[in-house]
Design a protein around this nucleic acid. Structure first.
Length: 803
RNA sequence: GCUGGUGUGGCGGAAUGGUAGACGCAAGGGACUUAAAAUCCCUCGGAGGCAACUCCGUGCCGGUUCGAGUCCGGCCACCAGCACCA
């Protein structure tokens, strides 16, 4: 027997799979059920992949390979999300064009992936920055526009001096999530997608999916639905404004109101405010503050009284002062709040600071702080100091007060969402141009479909501009055009789309990647959607998942997607840290390059260790010795050929071990428990070594079970031992439940709940028989005392004797 | 602060409420070898004991149960996400 020469074997099989197009899949395959296995496509960064990145690829490759062996027609595609800031920033740093950087990175990425023998269908590869792809991203944007879900709106936006305008979702702790620069607020006319119109359904339809509960919860929290009442307050000096509250029962406790400094209401009150200079100064300061600073001041809530302005509480006619304060957000609710210091801690702090009186309206103790809704809801607490509503429970009052205000015509029930509309414009070069044209006569007009894509022009200078305008705006030849409607001279939109655009629908394009008539045909989408198993990073379980679900839901509404929810299940991998427990990074010198590992131990050993390293969803530390251990294991499998004997069914010696392994590996792969699947294979291998003998049928079974994790060595062993049929035609083994029943089991015995030993017994033995065996066991019996009060026998598991 | 998650040997980790530590790493001992590597065998949670064996042990404190790593209540620590959401 020759040694295990993984270099030769792996190169041979990778070439063979590619030559015979083993993993290229058709949308329809006679007699086969379709299965869609998807991994988030990456942005291929210039640093190349490290072993941590491969975890999800090797894991889902195992899933895909197993499903193929089970006779499924499996779509397992891969592509690149190449638009976005990272490519642009690398390009700027290296003084190259993003186009060049991306092409170079993709080549490295593919080379690395191909070395480990992943079974992607590369014929369906896509790339979001390819015009043949973003043509359809643009087309889809136009559908949003045509259905009134995209519009240009003046909004306060997060502005980063390096990266331009950011979506709320891209601001992390008041800083830019890309470059960590402080984010400031700026007013700008932006394209937005009205995602809030789908907020309710995005939360509601989670019940159609099988996501893990924590993923559903994080989506629901992000959407942040709250039901309440919107109430109109008259300003004594003229005018009015509206507030939103979820605690209408506390309306008699209002002692002041607070408006967001940026709100329109404040502007409209300008000529009535007596301390206008002071107010203007406050507004100026607030605008300069980043969200981060605002939050830093959490203990010291800032605000400024609007002198000469009072609001009238519609419930009791009481006049209260009005403040502006930057803890009130213009972007949420109506940008104005009613303040009830007795029942809201934030208002309580604000009132204490400024010696504003409090009115307690719900019974309880407010000496040490506000009695908030979480304190009184559901406790049966009653209202006080609330006019005709005093004496009602909170729950009754909520309803009665709402009814009264509605009948007075000053209120309506309202549902608010924390989730905001999606700011979809970027003043950046490296993105899909937004396919819109502005005409002085016709307003915004979409680029006609037959003129798509609006190609991103090649330019010499694409750096972000200092004033925050798109670099494209400086290119006259791009900007100047004519109106598609009236033919008059017109100007193109120069903003581009955010990085999230192309990734919001890529999983649909895989179904029909070459289609130049449609973004994807309904037939192909019906064939594959919903994605059966979708794997991605934890960091994407809110944003990306929500965006993709939103796009799909809209597509469903306009009849271009066949499903309400695009992803059936969602799983995410834990990251692999360096061996020192810190995130792998070049500067820390703890990066492990898969190419080095492959060179030393081979792709199969690497793949096996990626699966065995630990629980898939947990964070783990890399350990070089693990690869060595897996290499050792594969060598043991290879050397097993020495034990090979004839035989076309499981031998009595190994029947139990094999049936158990089949069951365990099958279930564990289904349950995303790759580490225990591999350990079951190792256990099986140990059993075979103890037996010193393995027949052909048994060896074949072992190879099939191991194949999803170590595809090269298993196909090679299959071939050199001339097993039949050809490996590509074999099917996943079934186990025999009957073979898992043992004649004699070792039954644990507890006396008074303490483990005292085991007895050998038939699984069908009754209580009497077992008790007699226990009594005759010299070790266990000495713990027994008469009388026996109670016996708990769990057949096949345990007996507990109470005496 | 809120939400979610996690806490088990020297390490990575196993355990449908039923023998805690599967599988593997590291370590120690042995066999083979001139030697090393590779391979194979043995030991390997802690304390005590010559031994048979005994007691303790899954972050901490309680509870439910014949029986708790697992369920419940209350803490502590760490990780991640969110950030004044009215």
């Amino acid at each position: 027997m020759e040694g295990y020469n993984f270099h030769e074997i792996e190169a041979k099989w990778q070439k063979k799979w590619e030559d015979e197009k083993r993993f290229v899949v058709k949308n329809h395959e006679e007699g086969k059920q379709n299965e869609y296995v998807l991994i988030e496509f990456p942005y291929p960064s210039g640093k190349g992949l490290h072993v941590g990145h491969l975890r999800s690829y090797t894991a889902l490759d195992a899933v895909a390979r197993k499903k193929r062996l089970e006779g499924k027609n499996v779509l397992f595609p891969m592509g690149c999300d190449a638009f976005g800031l990272e490519a642009e920033r690398t390009a700027i740093r290296e003084h190259k064009l993003p186009q060049e950087i991306v092409a170079r990175n993709i080549a490295t990425f593919k080379e690395q992936l191909k070395q480990i023998g992943l079974s992607f269908d590369w014929s369906r590869e896509i790339n979001t920055c390819d015009p043949s792809y973003y043509k359809w991203t643009q087309w889809l944007f136009i559908q949003f526009f045509k259905h009134g879900l995209a519009e240009k709106r003046e909004t306060l936006v997060n502005f980063c001096k390096n990266c331009g305008v950011l979506a709320n979702e891209e601001v992390e702790g008041g800083k830019c999530c890309q470059c960590h620069e402080e984010v400031i607020q700026k007013s700008k006319s932006q394209w937005i997608l009205k995602m809030t119109e789908y907020a309710d359904r995005l939360a509601e339809d989670l019940k159609l999916t099988k996501y893990q509960q924590h993923i559903k919860t994080s989506q629901i929290n992000w959407i942040g639905k709250s039901e309440g009442v919107q109430v109109k307050f008259q300003i004594k000096q003229g005018g009015s404004f509206e507030i939103f509250t979820t605690c209408i029962e506390t309306i008699y406790g209002i002692t002041f109101m607070v408006l967001a400094p940026e709100s329109e209401i404040v502007k409209s009150l300008k000529d009535k405010i007596e301390n206008l200079d002071e107010v203007n100064e406050y507004i100026k300061q607030a605008a300069k503050k980043s969200e981060f600073e605002r939050q830093e001041l959490v203990k010291e809530k800032s605000g400024c009284l609007l002198k000469g302005i009072t609001a009238i509480n519609p419930a009791n006619g009481m006049e209260v002062p009005v403040y502006i304060g930057d803890f009130v957000l213009a972007g949420y609710g109506t940008g104005a709040v009613m303040a009830v210091p007795a029942h809201d801690q934030r208002d309580y702090d604000f009132a204490k600071q400024r010696k504003i009186p409090m009115i307690q309206v719900i019974e309880g103790d407010i000496r040490n702080g506000a009695l908030e809704k979480q304190d009184y809801l559901g406790t049966g607490a009653k209202l006080i100091n609330s006019g005709e509503f005093s004496g009602l429970t909170v729950e009754e009052a909520k309803q009665k007060i709402t009814e009264k205000l509605i009948s007075l015509g000053v209120a309506k029930k309202q549902v608010n969402f924390k989730m905001r509309d999606w700011v979809f414009s970027r003043q950046r070069y490296w993105g899909e141009p937004i396919p819109m044209i502005y005409c002085d006569h016709c307003g915004w007009v979409p680029v006609p479909e037959d003129q798509l894509p609006v190609v991103l022009p090649n330019v010499d200078s694409y750096e972000p501009t200092k004033d925050g305008e798109s670099p494209l705006s400086a290119i006259e030849s791009f900007v100047k055009t004519t109106c598609p409607k009236c033919g008059a001279p017109a100007r193109r939109e120069t903003d581009t789309m955010p990085g999230w655009a192309g990734s919001s629908w890529y999983f649909m394009r895989y179904c029909d990647p070459k289609n130049d008539k449609e973004f994807a045909s309904m037939d192909s989408l019906r064939a594959w959607l919903p994605v059966n198993i979708y794997n991605g990073g934890n960091e994407h379980t809110t944003r990306h998942l929500l965006y993709a679900r939103f796009w799909n839901k809209f597509f469903y509404d306009i009849g271009i997607s066949p499903v309400l929810e695009p992803f059936e299940t969602r799983i995410s991998q834990g990251i692999i840290l360096g061996s020192n427990g810190v995130k792998m990074s070049k500067s820390l010198g703890n990066v492990v390059d898969p190419r080095e590992v492959v060179k030393e131990y081979g792709a199969d050993s690497l793949r096996l260790w990626e699966s065995f390293i630990g629980d898939y969803s947990e964070m783990v530390n890399w350990n070089d010795n693990g690869v060595k251990a897996c290499f050792k294991f594969l060598n043991r499998v290879w050397a097993m050929q020495d034990f090979l004997v004839d035989g076309d069914k499981f031998s009595s010696e190994l029947s139990y071990a094999f049936n158990y392994a089949i069951k365990k590996v099958t279930n564990d792969i289904n349950d995303i428990k790759f580490n225990t699947a591999v350990s079951a294979l190792m256990t099986l291998c140990n059993e075979i070594y103890k037996n010193r003998k393995i027949n052909r049928e048994e060896f074949k079974t072992l190879l099939i079970l191991l194949n999803p994790f170590a595809p090269h060595i298993t196909e090679e062993l299959w071939e050199i031992n001339k097993f039949s049929p050809e490996f590509k035609n074999v099917s996943w083994p079934n186990y025999d439940e009957k073979a898992l029943v043992k004649n004699v089991i070792s039954l644990p015995v507890q006396i008074n709940g303490k483990m005292r030993g085991t007895i050998e017994v038939s699984p069908s033995a009754g209580q009497e028989e077992i008790l007699n065996l226990v009594k005759s066991d010299s070790v266990i019996s000495k713990y027994l005392t008469e009388p026996i009060k109670k016996v708990i026998l769990v057949p096949n598991r345990i007996i507990n004797i109470i005496c």
